[in-house]
Design a protein around this nucleic acid. Structure first.
Lengths: 252, 252
DNA sequence: GCTCGATTCAAACGATTGTTTGAAAACATC
DNA sequence: GATGTTTTCAAACAATCGTTTGAATCGAGC
Protein backbone atom coordinates (compact mmCIF):
# COMPACT_ATOMS: atom_id res chain seq x y z
CA UNK A 1 0.00 0.00 0.00
CA UNK A 2 1.24 3.49 -0.77
CA UNK A 3 1.53 5.95 2.06
CA UNK A 4 0.57 8.50 -0.57
CA UNK A 5 2.27 11.87 -0.29
CA UNK A 6 4.99 11.06 -2.80
CA UNK A 7 4.57 9.03 -5.92
CA UNK A 8 7.17 8.28 -8.50
CA UNK A 9 6.69 9.43 -12.06
CA UNK A 10 6.68 6.76 -14.75
CA UNK A 11 10.06 5.72 -16.00
CA UNK A 12 11.62 8.33 -18.27
CA UNK A 13 14.08 6.02 -19.98
CA UNK A 14 11.53 4.46 -22.29
CA UNK A 15 12.68 3.05 -25.63
CA UNK A 16 11.70 5.68 -28.17
CA UNK A 17 9.92 3.36 -30.56
CA UNK A 18 8.08 1.34 -27.95
CA UNK A 19 4.30 1.20 -28.27
CA UNK A 20 2.86 -0.12 -25.11
CA UNK A 21 -0.57 -0.91 -26.46
CA UNK A 22 -2.96 -0.06 -29.25
CA UNK A 23 -4.49 2.66 -27.16
CA UNK A 24 -3.31 6.22 -27.19
CA UNK A 25 -0.47 6.68 -24.77
CA UNK A 26 -1.77 7.75 -21.37
CA UNK A 27 -0.18 10.59 -19.50
CA UNK A 28 0.39 11.40 -15.85
CA UNK A 29 1.43 9.28 -12.94
CA UNK A 30 0.58 5.62 -12.54
CA UNK A 31 -2.52 6.18 -10.46
CA UNK A 32 -4.06 8.59 -12.94
CA UNK A 33 -3.17 6.44 -15.90
CA UNK A 34 -4.96 3.52 -14.31
CA UNK A 35 -8.01 5.64 -13.52
CA UNK A 36 -8.20 7.00 -17.05
CA UNK A 37 -7.88 3.60 -18.70
CA UNK A 38 -10.30 2.01 -16.24
CA UNK A 39 -12.88 4.73 -16.80
CA UNK A 40 -12.92 4.12 -20.52
CA UNK A 41 -12.83 0.33 -20.37
CA UNK A 42 -15.40 -0.01 -17.58
CA UNK A 43 -17.65 2.22 -19.65
CA UNK A 44 -17.10 0.13 -22.74
CA UNK A 45 -17.41 -3.38 -21.34
CA UNK A 46 -18.89 -3.10 -17.86
CA UNK A 47 -17.33 -4.02 -14.54
CA UNK A 48 -17.32 -7.79 -14.68
CA UNK A 49 -16.28 -8.07 -18.31
CA UNK A 50 -13.28 -5.76 -17.89
CA UNK A 51 -10.17 -7.58 -16.70
CA UNK A 52 -7.37 -5.94 -14.79
CA UNK A 53 -4.97 -7.10 -17.46
CA UNK A 54 -6.90 -5.18 -20.07
CA UNK A 55 -6.81 -2.05 -17.93
CA UNK A 56 -3.14 -2.22 -17.00
CA UNK A 57 -2.10 -2.97 -20.57
CA UNK A 58 -4.07 0.00 -21.89
CA UNK A 59 -2.61 2.20 -19.16
CA UNK A 60 0.91 0.98 -19.83
CA UNK A 61 1.52 -0.08 -16.23
CA UNK A 62 2.24 -3.35 -14.49
CA UNK A 63 -0.60 -5.68 -13.58
CA UNK A 64 0.16 -5.55 -9.87
CA UNK A 65 -0.09 -1.76 -9.83
CA UNK A 66 -3.87 -1.88 -9.42
CA UNK A 67 -3.74 -3.92 -6.22
CA UNK A 68 -0.84 -1.86 -4.98
CA UNK A 69 -2.45 1.54 -5.48
CA UNK A 70 -6.13 0.74 -5.00
CA UNK A 71 -6.24 -2.53 -3.08
CA UNK A 72 -8.67 -4.45 -5.27
CA UNK A 73 -10.66 -4.27 -8.49
CA UNK A 74 -13.76 -3.18 -6.61
CA UNK A 75 -11.94 -0.35 -4.91
CA UNK A 76 -10.57 0.73 -8.26
CA UNK A 77 -14.09 0.94 -9.63
CA UNK A 78 -15.21 3.04 -6.69
CA UNK A 79 -12.21 5.30 -7.16
CA UNK A 80 -13.13 5.76 -10.82
CA UNK A 81 -16.65 6.78 -9.85
CA UNK A 82 -15.80 8.98 -6.90
CA UNK A 83 -13.20 10.97 -8.82
CA UNK A 84 -15.85 12.73 -10.87
CA UNK A 85 -19.10 11.92 -9.09
CA UNK A 86 -18.15 13.57 -5.85
CA UNK A 87 -17.29 16.95 -7.40
CA UNK A 88 -20.37 16.80 -9.63
CA UNK A 89 -22.74 16.25 -6.73
CA UNK A 90 -20.98 18.95 -4.75
CA UNK A 91 -21.59 21.30 -7.66
CA UNK A 92 -25.24 20.36 -7.69
CA UNK A 93 -25.70 21.13 -4.01
CA UNK A 94 -23.80 24.37 -4.35
CA UNK A 95 -25.89 25.45 -7.33
CA UNK A 96 -29.13 24.63 -5.55
CA UNK A 97 -28.03 26.63 -2.53
CA UNK A 98 -27.16 29.58 -4.75
CA UNK A 99 -30.57 29.49 -6.43
CA UNK A 100 -32.35 29.28 -3.10
CA UNK A 101 -30.39 32.17 -1.64
CA UNK A 102 -31.13 34.20 -4.76
CA UNK A 103 -34.90 33.75 -4.82
CA UNK A 104 -35.22 34.00 -1.05
CA UNK A 105 -33.59 37.40 -1.15
CA UNK A 106 -35.84 38.68 -3.91
CA UNK A 107 -39.31 37.40 -3.23
CA UNK A 108 -39.19 36.69 0.45
CA UNK A 109 -40.98 33.35 0.45
CA UNK A 110 -38.51 31.52 -1.73
CA UNK A 111 -39.75 28.45 -3.56
CA UNK A 112 -37.74 27.56 -6.63
CA UNK A 113 -39.36 26.63 -9.90
CA UNK A 114 -39.02 23.11 -11.25
CA UNK A 115 -36.91 24.53 -14.07
CA UNK A 116 -34.43 25.96 -11.60
CA UNK A 117 -34.16 22.75 -9.62
CA UNK A 118 -33.71 20.71 -12.77
CA UNK A 119 -31.06 23.14 -13.91
CA UNK A 120 -29.20 22.61 -10.65
CA UNK A 121 -29.21 18.89 -11.40
CA UNK A 122 -28.35 19.13 -15.07
CA UNK A 123 -25.80 21.90 -15.31
CA UNK A 124 -23.04 20.00 -13.45
CA UNK A 125 -23.75 17.01 -15.70
CA UNK A 126 -23.57 19.28 -18.70
CA UNK A 127 -20.19 20.48 -17.55
CA UNK A 128 -18.93 16.91 -17.77
CA UNK A 129 -20.63 16.35 -21.10
CA UNK A 130 -18.85 19.38 -22.51
CA UNK A 131 -15.51 18.25 -21.11
CA UNK A 132 -14.01 17.18 -24.38
CA UNK A 133 -10.48 17.15 -23.06
CA UNK A 134 -10.91 14.64 -20.29
CA UNK A 135 -13.07 11.57 -20.12
CA UNK A 136 -16.10 13.47 -18.89
CA UNK A 137 -18.32 12.13 -21.62
CA UNK A 138 -17.13 8.62 -20.94
CA UNK A 139 -17.91 9.07 -17.30
CA UNK A 140 -21.54 10.00 -17.84
CA UNK A 141 -22.10 6.78 -19.72
CA UNK A 142 -20.26 4.80 -17.09
CA UNK A 143 -22.38 6.38 -14.39
CA UNK A 144 -25.61 5.63 -16.20
CA UNK A 145 -24.66 2.00 -16.41
CA UNK A 146 -23.50 1.76 -12.83
CA UNK A 147 -27.05 2.59 -11.74
CA UNK A 148 -28.37 -0.54 -13.36
CA UNK A 149 -25.56 -2.81 -12.16
CA UNK A 150 -26.80 -5.44 -9.73
CA UNK A 151 -23.49 -5.78 -7.87
CA UNK A 152 -24.18 -5.00 -4.20
CA UNK A 153 -20.97 -3.05 -3.66
CA UNK A 154 -21.89 -0.71 -6.51
CA UNK A 155 -25.42 -0.10 -5.32
CA UNK A 156 -24.28 0.51 -1.77
CA UNK A 157 -21.61 2.89 -2.95
CA UNK A 158 -23.98 4.93 -5.10
CA UNK A 159 -26.54 4.98 -2.34
CA UNK A 160 -24.05 6.62 -0.03
CA UNK A 161 -22.77 9.00 -2.67
CA UNK A 162 -26.25 10.27 -3.49
CA UNK A 163 -27.85 10.32 -0.06
CA UNK A 164 -27.27 13.98 0.69
CA UNK A 165 -28.12 15.16 -2.80
CA UNK A 166 -31.39 13.23 -2.96
CA UNK A 167 -32.51 14.60 0.39
CA UNK A 168 -31.82 18.18 -0.57
CA UNK A 169 -33.45 17.96 -3.99
CA UNK A 170 -36.50 16.14 -2.71
CA UNK A 171 -37.06 18.96 -0.25
CA UNK A 172 -36.66 21.52 -3.01
CA UNK A 173 -39.13 19.76 -5.29
CA UNK A 174 -41.50 19.43 -2.35
CA UNK A 175 -41.53 23.21 -1.94
CA UNK A 176 -41.91 23.73 -5.67
CA UNK A 177 -44.87 21.35 -5.82
CA UNK A 178 -46.70 21.94 -2.53
CA UNK A 179 -49.95 20.47 -3.81
CA UNK A 180 -48.38 17.03 -4.26
CA UNK A 181 -48.13 14.47 -1.44
CA UNK A 182 -44.61 13.95 -0.26
CA UNK A 183 -44.55 10.44 -1.57
CA UNK A 184 -45.62 11.47 -5.04
CA UNK A 185 -42.74 13.93 -5.04
CA UNK A 186 -40.34 11.14 -4.11
CA UNK A 187 -41.57 9.04 -6.99
CA UNK A 188 -41.32 11.82 -9.51
CA UNK A 189 -37.81 12.64 -8.38
CA UNK A 190 -37.05 8.98 -8.85
CA UNK A 191 -38.41 9.16 -12.40
CA UNK A 192 -36.28 12.22 -13.11
CA UNK A 193 -33.10 10.58 -11.88
CA UNK A 194 -33.97 7.47 -13.84
CA UNK A 195 -34.59 9.21 -17.12
CA UNK A 196 -31.45 11.25 -16.66
CA UNK A 197 -29.14 8.36 -15.95
CA UNK A 198 -30.72 6.15 -18.57
CA UNK A 199 -30.43 8.63 -21.37
CA UNK A 200 -26.88 9.48 -20.34
CA UNK A 201 -25.96 5.81 -20.38
CA UNK A 202 -25.96 6.40 -24.07
CA UNK A 203 -25.32 3.57 -26.45
CA UNK A 204 -28.45 1.61 -25.73
CA UNK A 205 -30.14 -0.52 -28.27
CA UNK A 206 -33.05 1.80 -28.89
CA UNK A 207 -31.08 4.71 -30.22
CA UNK A 208 -30.23 2.62 -33.22
CA UNK A 209 -33.85 2.45 -34.24
CA UNK A 210 -35.20 5.80 -33.25
CA UNK A 211 -34.26 7.77 -36.36
CA UNK A 212 -32.15 10.49 -34.86
CA UNK A 213 -30.03 12.85 -36.83
CA UNK A 214 -26.53 11.38 -36.72
CA UNK A 215 -24.94 14.51 -35.31
CA UNK A 216 -27.34 14.49 -32.38
CA UNK A 217 -26.96 10.90 -31.25
CA UNK A 218 -23.79 11.49 -29.29
CA UNK A 219 -24.40 15.10 -28.37
CA UNK A 220 -25.16 15.01 -24.67
CA UNK A 221 -25.76 18.74 -24.60
CA UNK A 222 -28.64 18.63 -27.04
CA UNK A 223 -29.95 15.57 -25.27
CA UNK A 224 -30.14 17.30 -21.92
CA UNK A 225 -31.80 20.34 -23.44
CA UNK A 226 -34.50 18.12 -24.86
CA UNK A 227 -34.87 16.07 -21.70
CA UNK A 228 -35.19 18.97 -19.26
CA UNK A 229 -38.52 20.38 -20.55
CA UNK A 230 -39.88 16.87 -20.84
CA UNK A 231 -39.16 16.19 -17.18
CA UNK A 232 -40.33 19.59 -16.00
CA UNK A 233 -43.71 18.95 -17.58
CA UNK A 234 -43.85 15.52 -15.97
CA UNK A 235 -43.10 16.93 -12.57
CA UNK A 236 -45.94 19.41 -12.89
CA UNK A 237 -48.44 16.81 -14.04
CA UNK A 238 -51.71 16.94 -12.09
CA UNK A 239 -52.01 14.34 -9.37
CA UNK A 240 -53.81 11.24 -10.54
CA UNK A 241 -56.96 10.99 -8.43
CA UNK A 242 -58.19 7.62 -7.33
CA UNK A 243 -61.47 8.35 -9.11
CA UNK A 244 -59.59 8.93 -12.36
CA UNK A 245 -57.57 5.78 -12.07
CA UNK A 246 -59.92 3.89 -14.32
CA UNK A 247 -58.81 6.13 -17.14
CA UNK A 248 -55.55 4.21 -17.17
CA UNK A 249 -55.14 0.51 -17.76
CA UNK A 250 -58.84 -0.22 -17.86
CA UNK A 251 -58.28 -3.35 -19.85
CA UNK A 252 -55.43 -4.77 -17.82
CA UNK B 1 -28.31 -30.44 -30.38
CA UNK B 2 -31.90 -31.42 -29.79
CA UNK B 3 -34.14 -31.88 -32.80
CA UNK B 4 -36.86 -30.52 -30.55
CA UNK B 5 -40.34 -32.04 -31.01
CA UNK B 6 -39.94 -34.55 -28.24
CA UNK B 7 -38.09 -34.03 -25.01
CA UNK B 8 -37.67 -36.40 -22.17
CA UNK B 9 -39.12 -35.60 -18.78
CA UNK B 10 -36.73 -35.43 -15.84
CA UNK B 11 -35.92 -38.66 -14.14
CA UNK B 12 -38.82 -39.88 -12.03
CA UNK B 13 -36.81 -42.22 -9.84
CA UNK B 14 -35.36 -39.52 -7.63
CA UNK B 15 -34.29 -40.41 -4.11
CA UNK B 16 -37.03 -39.09 -1.86
CA UNK B 17 -34.78 -37.20 0.53
CA UNK B 18 -32.50 -35.70 -2.07
CA UNK B 19 -32.22 -31.93 -2.08
CA UNK B 20 -30.45 -30.88 -5.20
CA UNK B 21 -29.76 -27.33 -4.10
CA UNK B 22 -30.82 -24.66 -1.67
CA UNK B 23 -33.28 -23.26 -4.16
CA UNK B 24 -36.84 -24.40 -4.37
CA UNK B 25 -37.14 -27.42 -6.60
CA UNK B 26 -37.88 -26.38 -10.17
CA UNK B 27 -40.56 -28.11 -12.15
CA UNK B 28 -41.00 -29.00 -15.78
CA UNK B 29 -38.62 -30.37 -18.35
CA UNK B 30 -34.92 -29.64 -18.43
CA UNK B 31 -35.17 -26.75 -20.85
CA UNK B 32 -37.79 -24.93 -18.79
CA UNK B 33 -35.98 -25.57 -15.53
CA UNK B 34 -32.86 -23.99 -16.97
CA UNK B 35 -34.80 -20.99 -18.27
CA UNK B 36 -36.51 -20.44 -14.93
CA UNK B 37 -33.32 -20.66 -12.91
CA UNK B 38 -31.41 -18.53 -15.41
CA UNK B 39 -34.10 -15.86 -15.39
CA UNK B 40 -33.88 -15.45 -11.65
CA UNK B 41 -30.10 -15.63 -11.39
CA UNK B 42 -29.39 -13.36 -14.35
CA UNK B 43 -31.76 -10.87 -12.77
CA UNK B 44 -30.03 -11.14 -9.43
CA UNK B 45 -26.38 -11.04 -10.47
CA UNK B 46 -26.26 -9.92 -14.08
CA UNK B 47 -25.05 -11.81 -17.12
CA UNK B 48 -21.31 -11.89 -16.58
CA UNK B 49 -21.44 -12.58 -12.86
CA UNK B 50 -23.76 -15.56 -13.23
CA UNK B 51 -21.91 -18.81 -13.92
CA UNK B 52 -23.42 -21.74 -15.73
CA UNK B 53 -22.63 -23.90 -12.74
CA UNK B 54 -24.76 -21.67 -10.54
CA UNK B 55 -27.64 -21.92 -12.97
CA UNK B 56 -27.48 -25.66 -13.53
CA UNK B 57 -27.14 -26.36 -9.83
CA UNK B 58 -30.19 -24.23 -9.02
CA UNK B 59 -32.14 -25.90 -11.81
CA UNK B 60 -31.07 -29.36 -10.71
CA UNK B 61 -29.69 -30.32 -14.09
CA UNK B 62 -26.30 -31.30 -15.40
CA UNK B 63 -23.80 -28.62 -16.32
CA UNK B 64 -23.54 -29.71 -19.94
CA UNK B 65 -27.29 -29.38 -20.40
CA UNK B 66 -27.02 -25.67 -21.15
CA UNK B 67 -24.65 -26.14 -24.07
CA UNK B 68 -26.67 -29.09 -25.25
CA UNK B 69 -30.06 -27.38 -25.26
CA UNK B 70 -29.10 -23.79 -26.00
CA UNK B 71 -25.65 -23.93 -27.56
CA UNK B 72 -23.90 -21.35 -25.42
CA UNK B 73 -24.35 -19.05 -22.45
CA UNK B 74 -25.14 -16.13 -24.70
CA UNK B 75 -27.83 -18.04 -26.53
CA UNK B 76 -29.30 -19.07 -23.20
CA UNK B 77 -29.54 -15.45 -22.20
CA UNK B 78 -31.28 -14.57 -25.43
CA UNK B 79 -33.67 -17.46 -24.92
CA UNK B 80 -34.50 -16.18 -21.45
CA UNK B 81 -35.29 -12.76 -22.86
CA UNK B 82 -37.21 -13.86 -25.92
CA UNK B 83 -39.46 -16.21 -24.00
CA UNK B 84 -41.36 -13.33 -22.42
CA UNK B 85 -40.26 -10.30 -24.41
CA UNK B 86 -41.60 -11.57 -27.71
CA UNK B 87 -45.15 -12.19 -26.45
CA UNK B 88 -45.13 -8.90 -24.54
CA UNK B 89 -44.22 -6.85 -27.60
CA UNK B 90 -46.75 -8.77 -29.65
CA UNK B 91 -49.37 -7.82 -27.09
CA UNK B 92 -48.32 -4.21 -27.33
CA UNK B 93 -48.71 -4.12 -31.11
CA UNK B 94 -52.01 -5.92 -30.93
CA UNK B 95 -53.33 -3.52 -28.32
CA UNK B 96 -52.24 -0.50 -30.31
CA UNK B 97 -53.94 -1.88 -33.40
CA UNK B 98 -57.12 -2.45 -31.43
CA UNK B 99 -57.11 1.11 -30.12
CA UNK B 100 -56.52 2.52 -33.58
CA UNK B 101 -59.30 0.47 -35.11
CA UNK B 102 -61.62 1.57 -32.32
CA UNK B 103 -61.08 5.32 -32.62
CA UNK B 104 -60.93 5.23 -36.40
CA UNK B 105 -64.37 3.67 -36.49
CA UNK B 106 -65.87 6.22 -34.14
CA UNK B 107 -64.44 9.60 -35.02
CA UNK B 108 -63.37 9.06 -38.57
CA UNK B 109 -59.99 10.79 -38.39
CA UNK B 110 -58.47 8.54 -35.79
CA UNK B 111 -55.55 9.91 -33.79
CA UNK B 112 -55.03 8.23 -30.47
CA UNK B 113 -54.39 10.18 -27.29
CA UNK B 114 -51.03 9.92 -25.53
CA UNK B 115 -52.78 8.14 -22.71
CA UNK B 116 -54.04 5.43 -25.04
CA UNK B 117 -50.64 4.90 -26.62
CA UNK B 118 -48.95 4.73 -23.24
CA UNK B 119 -51.58 2.28 -22.10
CA UNK B 120 -50.76 0.08 -25.06
CA UNK B 121 -47.14 0.08 -23.92
CA UNK B 122 -47.78 -0.36 -20.23
CA UNK B 123 -50.64 -2.84 -20.03
CA UNK B 124 -48.64 -5.79 -21.37
CA UNK B 125 -45.88 -4.92 -18.92
CA UNK B 126 -48.47 -4.74 -16.16
CA UNK B 127 -49.64 -8.19 -17.08
CA UNK B 128 -46.15 -9.50 -16.35
CA UNK B 129 -45.91 -7.48 -13.17
CA UNK B 130 -49.11 -9.05 -11.92
CA UNK B 131 -47.94 -12.52 -12.86
CA UNK B 132 -47.25 -13.69 -9.33
CA UNK B 133 -47.20 -17.34 -10.30
CA UNK B 134 -44.41 -17.23 -12.83
CA UNK B 135 -41.27 -15.20 -12.87
CA UNK B 136 -42.90 -12.25 -14.57
CA UNK B 137 -41.82 -9.80 -11.96
CA UNK B 138 -38.29 -11.11 -12.13
CA UNK B 139 -38.32 -10.71 -15.85
CA UNK B 140 -39.19 -7.02 -15.79
CA UNK B 141 -36.18 -6.33 -13.64
CA UNK B 142 -33.97 -8.47 -15.84
CA UNK B 143 -35.21 -6.61 -18.90
CA UNK B 144 -34.57 -3.23 -17.35
CA UNK B 145 -31.01 -4.22 -16.67
CA UNK B 146 -30.45 -5.74 -20.06
CA UNK B 147 -31.04 -2.30 -21.59
CA UNK B 148 -28.05 -0.89 -19.77
CA UNK B 149 -25.77 -3.84 -20.44
CA UNK B 150 -22.88 -2.90 -22.70
CA UNK B 151 -22.42 -6.39 -24.16
CA UNK B 152 -22.78 -6.07 -27.93
CA UNK B 153 -24.75 -9.27 -28.36
CA UNK B 154 -27.37 -8.05 -25.89
CA UNK B 155 -27.74 -4.65 -27.49
CA UNK B 156 -28.01 -6.14 -30.95
CA UNK B 157 -30.58 -8.62 -29.77
CA UNK B 158 -32.76 -5.99 -28.10
CA UNK B 159 -32.44 -3.74 -31.09
CA UNK B 160 -33.91 -6.43 -33.31
CA UNK B 161 -36.58 -7.37 -30.81
CA UNK B 162 -37.85 -3.81 -30.51
CA UNK B 163 -37.48 -2.61 -34.08
CA UNK B 164 -41.06 -3.18 -35.15
CA UNK B 165 -42.58 -1.95 -31.90
CA UNK B 166 -40.60 1.28 -31.88
CA UNK B 167 -41.55 2.06 -35.46
CA UNK B 168 -45.23 1.55 -34.82
CA UNK B 169 -45.33 3.52 -31.59
CA UNK B 170 -43.30 6.37 -32.97
CA UNK B 171 -45.82 6.72 -35.78
CA UNK B 172 -48.68 6.67 -33.27
CA UNK B 173 -47.09 9.33 -31.09
CA UNK B 174 -46.39 11.38 -34.20
CA UNK B 175 -50.10 11.42 -35.03
CA UNK B 176 -51.00 12.20 -31.41
CA UNK B 177 -48.55 15.12 -31.32
CA UNK B 178 -48.75 16.60 -34.83
CA UNK B 179 -47.31 19.95 -33.74
CA UNK B 180 -43.98 18.36 -32.78
CA UNK B 181 -41.15 17.75 -35.25
CA UNK B 182 -40.61 14.11 -36.00
CA UNK B 183 -37.25 14.14 -34.32
CA UNK B 184 -38.63 15.59 -31.12
CA UNK B 185 -41.15 12.76 -31.09
CA UNK B 186 -38.35 10.23 -31.45
CA UNK B 187 -36.52 11.71 -28.50
CA UNK B 188 -39.57 11.77 -26.28
CA UNK B 189 -40.37 8.19 -27.14
CA UNK B 190 -36.80 7.42 -26.19
CA UNK B 191 -37.30 9.14 -22.85
CA UNK B 192 -40.49 7.17 -22.24
CA UNK B 193 -38.81 3.85 -22.96
CA UNK B 194 -35.88 4.87 -20.78
CA UNK B 195 -37.95 5.86 -17.79
CA UNK B 196 -40.03 2.73 -18.12
CA UNK B 197 -37.15 0.30 -18.28
CA UNK B 198 -35.17 2.11 -15.62
CA UNK B 199 -37.94 2.15 -13.07
CA UNK B 200 -38.79 -1.46 -13.83
CA UNK B 201 -35.17 -2.44 -13.30
CA UNK B 202 -36.10 -2.04 -9.69
CA UNK B 203 -33.54 -2.46 -7.01
CA UNK B 204 -31.43 0.53 -7.86
CA UNK B 205 -29.49 2.46 -5.33
CA UNK B 206 -31.80 5.42 -5.24
CA UNK B 207 -34.87 3.65 -3.99
CA UNK B 208 -33.09 3.09 -0.72
CA UNK B 209 -32.98 6.79 -0.04
CA UNK B 210 -36.17 8.08 -1.51
CA UNK B 211 -38.49 7.49 1.45
CA UNK B 212 -41.09 5.31 -0.12
CA UNK B 213 -43.72 3.44 1.77
CA UNK B 214 -42.36 -0.07 2.18
CA UNK B 215 -45.39 -1.72 0.62
CA UNK B 216 -44.98 0.36 -2.52
CA UNK B 217 -41.32 -0.22 -3.20
CA UNK B 218 -41.80 -3.56 -4.88
CA UNK B 219 -45.27 -2.97 -6.24
CA UNK B 220 -44.78 -2.61 -9.95
CA UNK B 221 -48.47 -1.95 -10.52
CA UNK B 222 -48.53 1.17 -8.36
CA UNK B 223 -45.26 2.22 -9.91
CA UNK B 224 -46.62 2.09 -13.43
CA UNK B 225 -49.76 3.96 -12.43
CA UNK B 226 -47.63 6.76 -11.07
CA UNK B 227 -45.24 6.75 -14.01
CA UNK B 228 -47.86 6.87 -16.76
CA UNK B 229 -49.30 10.34 -16.00
CA UNK B 230 -45.79 11.65 -15.47
CA UNK B 231 -44.76 10.53 -18.94
CA UNK B 232 -47.99 11.63 -20.58
CA UNK B 233 -47.42 15.16 -19.31
CA UNK B 234 -43.84 15.06 -20.53
CA UNK B 235 -44.91 13.97 -23.98
CA UNK B 236 -47.32 16.89 -24.21
CA UNK B 237 -44.78 19.44 -23.07
CA UNK B 238 -44.61 22.49 -25.36
CA UNK B 239 -41.73 22.44 -27.79
CA UNK B 240 -38.72 24.31 -26.52
CA UNK B 241 -38.17 27.17 -28.94
CA UNK B 242 -34.66 28.24 -29.81
CA UNK B 243 -35.49 31.69 -28.48
CA UNK B 244 -36.45 30.18 -25.12
CA UNK B 245 -33.33 28.07 -24.86
CA UNK B 246 -31.60 30.62 -22.69
CA UNK B 247 -34.14 29.83 -19.99
CA UNK B 248 -32.35 26.56 -19.44
CA UNK B 249 -28.72 26.16 -18.44
CA UNK B 250 -27.87 29.81 -18.68
CA UNK B 251 -24.94 29.39 -16.36
CA UNK B 252 -23.48 26.28 -17.89
C1' DG C 1 27.95 6.39 -0.97
C1' DC C 2 24.77 4.52 1.70
C1' DT C 3 20.37 3.50 3.67
C1' DC C 4 15.46 3.28 3.72
C1' DG C 5 10.86 3.51 2.19
C1' DA C 6 8.15 3.80 -2.06
C1' DT C 7 7.22 1.90 -6.36
C1' DT C 8 7.68 -1.32 -10.31
C1' DC C 9 8.20 -5.68 -12.26
C1' DA C 10 7.98 -10.67 -13.88
C1' DA C 11 6.23 -14.72 -12.34
C1' DA C 12 3.36 -17.65 -10.24
C1' DC C 13 -0.69 -18.76 -7.29
C1' DG C 14 -5.23 -21.12 -6.70
C1' DA C 15 -9.69 -20.69 -8.19
C1' DT C 16 -13.23 -20.32 -11.55
C1' DT C 17 -14.79 -19.75 -16.18
C1' DG C 18 -17.47 -21.66 -20.65
C1' DT C 19 -17.11 -25.50 -23.38
C1' DT C 20 -16.13 -30.26 -25.01
C1' DT C 21 -15.88 -35.20 -24.73
C1' DG C 22 -17.30 -40.00 -24.71
C1' DA C 23 -19.72 -43.15 -22.41
C1' DA C 24 -24.06 -44.35 -19.97
C1' DA C 25 -28.95 -43.99 -19.64
C1' DA C 26 -33.64 -43.19 -21.28
C1' DC C 27 -36.58 -42.96 -24.85
C1' DA C 28 -39.28 -44.08 -29.29
C1' DT C 29 -40.00 -47.21 -33.12
C1' DC C 30 -40.18 -51.31 -35.03
C1' DG D 1 -36.52 -57.30 -27.26
C1' DA D 2 -33.28 -55.20 -30.58
C1' DT D 3 -32.19 -50.74 -32.89
C1' DG D 4 -31.27 -46.02 -33.36
C1' DT D 5 -31.89 -41.46 -31.63
C1' DT D 6 -32.22 -38.25 -27.89
C1' DT D 7 -30.85 -36.85 -23.55
C1' DT D 8 -28.06 -37.05 -19.30
C1' DC D 9 -23.91 -37.47 -16.86
C1' DA D 10 -19.13 -37.22 -14.74
C1' DA D 11 -14.88 -35.72 -16.02
C1' DA D 12 -11.67 -33.10 -18.11
C1' DC D 13 -10.33 -29.28 -21.21
C1' DA D 14 -7.75 -24.91 -22.03
C1' DA D 15 -8.19 -20.28 -20.90
C1' DT D 16 -8.69 -16.46 -17.95
C1' DC D 17 -9.57 -14.40 -13.69
C1' DG D 18 -8.02 -11.36 -9.30
C1' DT D 19 -4.50 -11.52 -6.19
C1' DT D 20 0.06 -12.40 -4.03
C1' DT D 21 4.94 -12.80 -3.78
C1' DG D 22 9.75 -11.47 -3.57
C1' DA D 23 13.23 -9.42 -5.82
C1' DA D 24 14.69 -5.36 -8.57
C1' DT D 25 14.64 -0.41 -9.15
C1' DC D 26 13.88 4.10 -8.05
C1' DG D 27 14.12 8.65 -5.40
C1' DA D 28 15.16 11.22 -1.32
C1' DG D 29 17.79 12.27 3.08
C1' DC D 30 21.74 11.92 5.78
Amino acid sequence: MPNSALRRLPRVTEPAVEKISDKVAETGDTKSRILDAAEELFMEHGFEATSLRLITTAAGVNLAAVNYHFGSKEELFQAVLTRRLDPMNQDRLQLLTAYEADTAGKSGKGALTCEQIISAMFIPALKLARDHEQGGKNFLRLLGRAYADPAPFIREFLSNQYAEMITRFRAAFGRALPHLPREEVSWRLHFVMGALSYTLAGTDALKMIAQFHPEEVNNDELLLKRLAPFLAAGLRAPLQQASDAHQWFTEA
